[in-house]
């Protein structure tokens, strides 16, 4: 009789309960390990999604129905370590004339070179966009069946200095069309392909265009609307024109970024 013999006897005699305990431990370990792995996976996925959506952006100053001056970005730059980038973001719906493919809820984003400092670029040189050229993300490319060099159209809500439901706001000609050429389809995990200031599991439809070009269009629209508002104020003071006629006149003058 030895201690080893005693241990062996105990193991063989209670083999069934030992196997049961072992299986229970294995199942419990698998469940716990699986839970931890899934938890880590979900966490990593959410981190990746957030990174693709925001890049290096840490804060955003958003005015939903108002606009900042583009040079405000330079004015509020406090030091060399913090980068500011102005963007002009408009809502749009897109379609391709030939294929009749459509996409709604598109983000049309006017950007300049400073924007790329916030992006997770996989290329050394940022993409160069000319007027009328667009950089689109893979989801929009798949939705509309687009590739580099293809042409597509966007219908955008014209930017306005007045809210749409304000009494002075124009009631007609609220949208405009833009024809754009695809300069490049961004990589899936790079170049802020899924840039969005709103969290969500589904990637957005993104179209990036030159900021100056979009500003130029917008400025034209805002100028038209300001002229209309001044005309309305003059008419109101003289009392020669009623509310309904004024609204009709504003509508005729328009305030879009311009249709091509």
């Amino acid at each position: 009789m030895t201690r080893g013999r005693l241990i062996f006897n105990s193991l063989t005699h209670h083999a069934r309960s030992h196997v049961g305990t072992l299986l229970g431990a294995i199942v419990a370990s698998a469940v716990l390990t699986g839970s931890l792995v899934v938890g880590d996976s979900v966490k990593k996925t959410l981190q990746n999604q957030a990174q693709q959506r925001l890049g290096h952006i840490q804060a955003a100053l958003v005015q939903h129905d108002r606009f900042f001056r583009a040079d405000l970005a330079n004015a509020i730059a406090l030091d060399d370590k913090t980068h500011f980038a102005p963007i002009l973001k408009l809502n749009a719906a897109g379609y391709v004339t030939d294929t009749k493919k459509r996409a709604n809820q598109i983000q049309l984003i006017g950007i300049d070179d400073s924007f790329w400092k916030q992006a997770l670029l996989k290329t050394i040189r940022p993409p160069i966009l000319k007027d009328g050229e667009a950089l689109i993300n893979p989801r929009l490319a798949a939705q509309l069946g687009l590739k580099a060099g293809d042409e597509f159209r966007l219908r955008i809500a014209k930017p306005s200095v007045l809210p749409r439901d304000a009494p002075l706001s124009v009631a007609e000609d609220l949208t405009a069309r833009l024809t754009l050429t695809v300069a490049k389809v961004t990589g899936v995990n790079s170049e802020l392909a899924n840039f969005s200031l709103r969290p969500g599991a589904v990637p957005p439809f993104n179209v990036f265009v030159p900021l100056a070009w979009l500003q130029k269009k917008s400025r034209t629209a805002r100028t038209r609307q300001r002229d209309a508002r001044e005309q309305y104020n003059t008419d109101s003071r003289t009392g020669s024109i009623g509310q309904c006629r004024a609204e009709k006149k504003l509508a005729h003058r328009g305030c879009g970024v311009g249709a091509d």
Binding site: M1, T2, R3, R5, L6, N9, S10, T12, H13, H14
Partner: peptide, 13 residues
């Protein structure tokens, strides 16, 4: 789990 002989010898371990 032990035989008669083994049980008797357990205290010697």
């Amino acid at each position: 789990q032990c035989t008669v002989m083994e049980n008797v010898l357990v205290p010697t371990l």
